[in-house]
């Protein structure tokens, strides 16, 4: 019993450490200042500042860029990754192994090395600075996640399922559209979500490849350039709070739904 309480409190302490900064930021986002005091009482001033501050324009531009780059690159990554998975699945073992190794590489590699290798490449090839660089880089490090999501699903597929479709009169194209895609679609969706999140979240690769002159900033690079120098202005507290609540909320809801579904299925199979 004592052991149980000890264990519980240990978990709580670690959790508290993990969430303390987040909770502090959220609490003080209502103080309207960045000095961790409630001199002005409870106020939404910081939240208003997101829209009214002299930096709002660039802030919203950065938000727009973040979503633009994440959407374009994750859609491209999903399309390319899905087709690549089907192709890789059909490859002979000998070619398949090196291809899979190359696919793993961006995932195991350290981000900074990836980032500078992209930069060297773009600089050497005199590739125009701007969105294209960022989007290509993002596709390159997002697609492996899509492949990693879709390829195992293809592997777990009964190989006879595709043949069964042919056997029942579907031509190869129809068999692909009516059988293979519907079956692997959950894996495609989760690959897409993964690619989108990872692209949204990226800082290092964008920071190093955005190029000094273009002035393109994503949210993370904008935070870095703004907050590194002057510390956090009050509107950042509000911004961070919104991000915390959004991200944590979405992840929590998605995962809970997944768990509930698993539980339901387990129950159903039990009967």
């Amino acid at each position: 019993m004592v052991k149980k309480i000890f264990e519980k409190s240990y978990l709580l302490i670690i959790l508290a450490m993990l969430y303390a900064p987040i909770i502090f930021i959220i609490v003080y986002s209502f103080s309207g200042s960045s000095n961790f005091n409630f001199k002005d009482g409870f106020t939404f001033a910081s939240y208003e500042a997101i829209f009214t501050s002299d930096k709002s324009a660039s802030l919203w531009e950065a938000v727009g860029n973040t979503f633009l780059i994440a959407s374009v690159s994750s859609v491209c990554a999903t399309i390319m990754g899905t087709f690549a998975s089907i192709g890789i699945f059909a490859l002979g073992k000998r070619i398949r192994r090196p291809v899979e190794a190359v696919n793993q590489f961006p995932i195991i590699n350290s981000e900074i090395v990836m980032a500078v290798s992209f930069m060297i490449f773009f600089v050497t090839c005199r590739f125009a600075e701007g969105y294209a660089r960022l989007i290509i880089a993002h596709i390159a490090f997002c697609t492996p996640y899509v492949v990693l999501s879709v390829l195992p699903k293809l592997e777990s597929l009964d190989p006879n399922v595709y043949e069964a479709a042919l056997d029942l009169g579907a031509n190869p194209f129809k068999a692909m559209m009516k059988v293979i895609f519907p079956i692997i679609s959950p894996a495609i969706v989760s690959g897409f979500v993964m690619a989108f999140t990872i692209s949204l979240d990226d800082f290092i690769i964008t920071q190093i490849n955005k190029g000094a002159a273009t002035g393109i900033d994503t949210l993370s690079t904008y935070i870095y350039s703004d907050a590194r120098v002057q510390g956090l202005e009050p509107f950042w507290y509000a911004m961070f709070s919104i991000i915390f609540v959004l991200v944590l909320g979405i992840i929590l809801v998605v995962n809970m739904a997944k768990m509930r579904k698993q539980k339901k299925e387990a129950l159903k199979n039990g009967i």
């Binding site: 009964d158 006879n160 399922v161 043949e163 069964a164 479709a165 059988v179 519907p182 079956i183």
Partner: peptide, 9 residues
């Protein structure tokens, strides 16, 4: 087929 190969979806 041996393992039926029913379409799971």
């Amino acid at each position: 087929f041996q393992k039926y190969a029913l379409f799971p979806h």
